[in-house]
């Protein structure tokens, strides 16, 4: 009995030792040299593996950071400037600063403004619905409301609002990785410069049809009337294919365009309530 146990132990130890030796030599033989700094950089990155930088993951991005001479195209939107500066310090390079961005949904075709004329009953993804037809509200540019962007978001920063049937971005959580922009088959979501107090002014419509056609499907569509273009003092607005676009960099948030828009297609968000003539009159009276 004892003998069996001893033989077993000796055999197992023998196999173990032999395997260890073989493994050691194989590891030596096939060793790939890797810059140890890649590990350090990877450690310093957020580690979300979201692909927002355009690389396959944080590791691939770390490799690029170490190997690339120029950092012009390298930026991690999740970590932001602070994080990039930290990595730059690690490697003794200089990071290119970028203005922080946030995802903005440019459609406000709620059932109230864009009446649903039919009902979609296919596989519940925007990609398939988009391939099939114009959508429940008939607007060929508008949000399909099936939430491909929500599925794409790794940061829980975009949610469907069941009341409006549209996605809403949680500004604090959004890292501007661009996954939702990529996922949206209609290119409704745009990354725009992040302003103080999360203030935003943007044209909440991407319909390029003629005004009369656009307004037929959706009451808050941009009809391409150019009124905002005329009123903008900073040349921030461009008109293209019956559609106004506000350049987020040039825009100084003066809110003049918001007032003149006849269809309320320009949205202002996180601004203090505006003094209307009526409230002014009331204030006047109170004095």
């Amino acid at each position: 009995m004892n003998q069996i146990i001893i033989v077993t132990i000796i055999t197992l130890v023998g196999i173990g030792t032999a395997a260890a030796v073989i493994l050691y030599f194989v590891a030596q033989r096939f060793k790939v040299y890797e810059d140890p700094r890649i590990d350090e950089v990877e450690e310093a990155l957020p580690g979300a593996n979201c692909g927002g930088c355009g690389y396959a993951g944080c590791r691939a991005f770390a490799e690029a950071l170490v190997k690339n001479e120029s950092w012009d195209d390298l930026y991690c939107p999740v970590g932001g400037n602070e994080n990039m500066a930290k990595v730059a310090e690690l490697l003794g390079k200089e990071a290119v600063e970028q203005a922080p961005q946030v995802a903005v949904v440019r459609c406000y075709g709620t059932p109230e403004f864009r009446a649903r004329t039919n009902e979609y009953d296919g596989a519940p993804t925007c990609a398939i619905a988009h391939q099939l037809y114009a959508g429940e509200g008939g607007c060929p540019h508008g949000c399909l409301g099936l939430g491909d962007c929500v599925v794409a978001c790794d940061f829980d920063a975009i949610h469907m609002n069941p009341a409006t049937g549209l996605p809403e971005v949680v500004d604090d959580k959004c890292t501007a990785c661009g996954a939702c922009v990529e996922a949206c088959p209609r290119d409704i979501i745009e990354l725009r410069k992040k302003n103080k107090k999360d203030r935003k002014i943007f044209v909440c419509c991407i319909n390029e049809e003629k005004g009369a056609v656009a307004i037929k499907n959706c009451k808050v569509a941009c009809i391409g009337c150019s009124k905002c273009y005329d009123v903008c003092p900073y040349d921030a607005i461009t008109m293209n294919n019956n559609l106004a676009y506000i350049d987020p960099v040039k825009c100084k948030l003066c809110r003049k365009c918001v007032v003149v828009c006849p269809t309320n297609a320009i949205h202002e968000i996180n601004f203090p309530p505006r003094k209307t003539e009526k409230t002014e009159a009331v204030e006047e009276e109170n004095k």
């Binding site: 099939l132 037809y133 114009a134 959508g135 008939g138 060929p140 049809e209």
Partner: peptide, 10 residues
């Protein structure tokens, strides 16, 4: 002019 086709696209 543009008209919606059977898929609703113009």
């Amino acid at each position: 002019d543009i008209f919606p086709d059977s898929s609703g696209y113009r």
